[in-house]
Design a protein around this nucleic acid. Structure first.
Length: 113
DNA sequence: AGCGTGACGAACT
DNA sequence: TAGTTCGCCACGC
């Protein structure tokens, strides 16, 4: 059984749009914790992969990081590539522009508050 | 109850 | 520029 913390992490993963990626650090920030280690551990224990897009979480430097499902990192890269995220030598191509930030509105809000 | 581990990150050398 | 060290907090033993 998962803990409250874990479920919160997995729920956050669902917010990541296709073709975009996020970092463990951004995820931790969204969760309100500095424990990126704990977040990583939580993501790795996600039992709903790849239904929950845990493969869209990469390291802060644009590297792939790790992956527990399928063929490991190879599967993670394949999934990302299918979504339009190119990976070169283990690193995300155009990482900065593909990095998703939680709460970042892509559409202008309908009418201010 | 305490200790070690871990899908990380930033600083230091 | 690359490799190493310390810090971080949740979880299992």
């Amino acid at each position: 059984m998962a803990t409250e913390f874990q479920r919160r992490v997995w729920e956050a993963l669902r917010l990541i749009p296709e073709g975009r990626v996020t970092s463990y650090g951004a995820l931790a920030e969204y969760l309100g914790t500095r424990a990126v280690r704990a977040v990583g551990t939580a993501v790795g224990k996600n039992p709903y992969a790849p239904e929950v897009p845990c493969h869209r979480v990469v390291r802060a430097d644009g590297r792939i990081g790790r992956y527990s499902g399928g063929e490991g990192v190879a599967t993670k890269i394949a999934l990302l590539k299918k979504e339009g995220v190119e990976v070169r030598d283990g690193k995300i191509v155009g990482f900065a522009s593909k990095l998703y930030r939680f709460g970042d509105q892509q559409c202008t809000r309908p009418s201010g508050s």
